[in-house]
């Protein structure tokens, strides 16, 4: 959409102090911000995409090994974390809702809850990593495989599954940490009363990022955890 399509009164324009000098009006600034965030998110898709490609390829070539490797993951923790993230997505969406409708208090509450859920996710992840370390499943440090060995599986390929698991979940956790930092900023500025129904783009964009990180997990969960779940029975 170009500036030509946008018609706002002068009063509306000047009402917004958050308008940056090079934009004509708030609507243009908001549209630009949202589009920018979406474009950023597709770069993220491609960034994770390289790992997904490697995953799909090696899983196709070594299906048995990947299923075996997957059976060594803790499905309950993975599922719990999925629920935690979905909850945090809901609370984030509600935080955006209250930013749009101008409730500072509810906004802060839901941002805080989102932050807490994100932190919970990371704590659970931490326990999972510790468990992997105990089981000697960390390739770099102490990899040994004594688990399931379905026909066709091989230890190097299982080891590679664990590498892919650590790189993918590690990168995802890194994005979560960045997300927590971002939420911190949002909470601070929300507390300062910066966000109004006219200007709350940062909350909205933060929400987009948070949901994206959630989506990555929505794919990681079945690809990594559920793959070998039927082997454990």
């Amino acid at each position: 959409m170009s500036a030509a399509d946008i018609h706002l009164t002068d009063a509306e324009q000047h009402a917004a102090t958050a308008l940056q000098h090079h934009f004509d009006n708030m609507e243009q600034q908001r549209v630009a911000g949202t589009l920018g965030m979406w474009v950023f998110l597709i770069t993220e898709i491609m960034f994770f995409g390289g790992l997904f490609t490697a995953y799909v390829l090696y899983r196709t070539l070594n299906a048995a090994s990947f299923a075996a490797g997957s059976s060594g993951l803790n499905v309950k923790m993975g599922a719990a974390n999925t629920v935690v993230l979905i909850c945090s997505s809901l609370t984030m969406a509600l935080a955006v809702f209250y930013a749009q409708t101008g409730s500072r208090r509810m906004q802060i509450i839901f941002l805080l809850v989102t932050w807490a859920l994100g932190a919970t996710f990371l704590v659970v992840k931490g326990f999972e990593y510790a468990e992997k370390f105990r089981d000697n499943h960390v390739p770099w440090l102490n990899f040994q495989w004594e688990g399931k060995m379905p026909p066709g599986a091989s230890v190097p390929s299982i080891r590679m599954f664990y590498w892919i698991y650590f790189v993918m979940t590690g990168l995802h956790a890194f994005h979560m940490i960045i997300g927590l930092g971002m939420l911190g900023f949002l909470i601070y500025f929300a507390w300062r009363g910066r966000y109004t129904p006219e200007y709350h783009a940062p909350v909205e964009l933060g929400g987009l990022y948070w949901h994206f990180v959630d989506i990555v997990w929505i794919f990681l969960f079945p690809l990594l955890y559920l793959l070998g779940a039927n082997l454990t029975h």
Partner: peptide
């Protein structure tokens, strides 16, 4: 707006190309 739809679709489409 439609542009957002295009952007989202493009992201997944390119991922599909790569895979």
């Amino acid at each position: 707006p439609r542009l957002t739809w295009v952007v989202v679709t493009a992201g997944f489409f390119w991922l599909a190309i790569m895979i």
